[in-house]
Design a protein around this nucleic acid. Structure first.
Lengths: 104, 104
DNA sequence: ACACTATTTGGCGATTTGACCAAATAGGCA
DNA sequence: TGCCTATTTGGTCAAATCGCCAAATAGTGT
């Protein structure tokens, strides 16, 4: 793997790692429906608010979501809806696995 | 997050985690071009063969690649090319980030 | 059976990740 | 200013991940 390749795939992995968590995928899914503040997401997720805040930071750093402070709250929304295609991809793999299973 | 949701997003995360590594993404990319045995991939990747073997196991367990023993070697290939769409998705996010940057 | 090659597995140390708690920070409002 | 709510940050601990080495396994050919 050349150095150039290495950088390229580490960049891809950086985004990919940000997606590699059930809670973060769930948050993305919810933010696709509407924007939410941290407190609201915390209730939806059902974890400590500091935990949710950290997940949001990870997604933000990956450029997947955006934050906007309004009044007392920080609202998050999807930065680019192209991540939603990821769900389709992941689901395809899962379905494809199931089909392979059934075909046995 | 309901129990059903939880199961669903953990399943998605399971696949997503398998992709969350530069070397594994690189392997997928190479296997898109042609099939390779472990030894060949090891040379391409430039890591210990046991390390590469473990990466391959992770990808196999996620249903992303398939192995086939022929002669002395185990050849790996993509199980479903739908994972390739994932590269497009990840690249979109990265490009989208860059565009947002430039627009500032 | 023996030697040789390819691959996987087990185990270890190092690093990263994830969850919670507690404390710090930031804004709004009385 | 002081209080209250929302959010982030720092710290700690447990668990997961990663990479290598060494050993085990599997198959080929002599």
């Amino acid at each position: 793997m050349t150095n150039l390749d290495k950088r390229k795939y580490e960049e891809l992995a950086r985004i990919s790692k940000a997606l590699a968590h059930a809670t973060r995928l769930y948050i993305i899914h919810k933010l696709d429906e509407q924007e939410y503040c941290v407190k609201e997401l915390t209730e939806l997720v059902g974890a400590d608010i500091s935990t949710v805040s950290k997940h949001l930071t990870i997604l933000k750093n990956a450029g997947i979501i955006l934050d906007e402070k309004r009044g007392n709250c920080v609202y998050y929304k999807l930065q680019c809806r192209c991540v939603l295609a990821m769900f389709g991809c992941l689901t395809n793999v899962i379905d494809s696995n199931k089909n392979k299973m059934n075909a046995m």
